Amino acid sequence: MVSTAKLKPGDRVRAIRELTGLNQREFAEALGVDITLLKNIEYKRNRVTESFYEIIGRTFPEMLPWFVYEGPLTLDSLRNSKSSLCKVAAARIDAGFIPAGFFSEDIFKDGNQ
């Protein structure tokens, strides 16, 4: 299990991927990146580049503050997102599919962080 304190960027990439329910190949395709790059970031062999931050921001705009600095993330923002993948994440949270170890227990309660 990953500690929720001071997650590495690779851990946050994996958390977002698991929250969407996609495997690495599907997630890489959704982001438009090579699967090898995604794996290397998740396994912390590569650093997250500025262009990768931009890709995350375009694909998951409501998750960007959390991805960059573990900033605020609300269930309501995911539900109301224009991003279909953010809406998928919201639906999975509503169904109780929250990946263990990445998010504090109360982060998604009642739309609050």
Rank of each mutant, 00 (worst) to 15 (best):
V2P: 15
S3I: 02
S3H: 09
S3E: 14
S3Y: 04
T4Q: 04
A5K: 12
L7E: 02
L7H: 03
K8W: 02
P9D: 10
P9V: 09
P9R: 06
P9Y: 06
G10F: 05
R12D: 04
R12K: 11
V13Q: 05
V13R: 04
A15V: 11
I16A: 06
I16F: 09
I16G: 01
R17V: 06
T20F: 07
T20I: 09
T20D: 03
N23Y: 09
N23G: 13
Q24M: 03
E26D: 14
E26G: 08
F27H: 03
A30R: 08
A30E: 12
L31P: 00
L31E: 00
D34E: 05
D34G: 03
T36V: 07
T36L: 02
K39N: 14
K39R: 11
I41E: 08
Y43M: 04
K44P: 03
R45T: 03
N46I: 00
R47V: 08
R47I: 07
R47W: 06
V48W: 05
V48D: 02
S51T: 08
Y53N: 12
I55V: 11
I55E: 01
I56M: 15
G57F: 02
R58Q: 08
T59P: 02
P61N: 10
P61K: 04
P61V: 09
M63Y: 01
M63G: 00
M63W: 07
W66G: 07
W66I: 04
W66K: 03
Y69E: 13
Y69I: 05
E70T: 11
G71Y: 05
P72I: 05
P72E: 12
P72Q: 12
T74I: 01
T74E: 06
T74F: 00
L75G: 11
L75P: 12
D76Y: 06
L78I: 12
R79V: 14
R79Q: 14
N80Y: 07
S81V: 07
S81A: 13
K82P: 02
K82A: 14
K82Y: 03
S83Q: 05
S83H: 01
S83C: 04
S84H: 04
S84P: 01
L85C: 03
L85H: 00
C86D: 15
C86P: 09
C86E: 15
K87W: 12
K87Y: 02
K87Q: 15
K87E: 12
A89D: 06
A91F: 02
A91S: 04
R92P: 13
D94M: 12
D94H: 06
A95W: 01
G96H: 08
G96C: 13
G96M: 13
F97H: 10
I98R: 10
A100P: 00
G101M: 14
G101Y: 00
G101T: 14
F102N: 00
F103Y: 15
S104R: 15
E105L: 15
D106E: 15
D106C: 06
D106H: 14
D106M: 09
D106V: 15
I107C: 13
I107E: 05
F108H: 08
F108S: 10
F108G: 08
N112C: 15
Q113I: 14
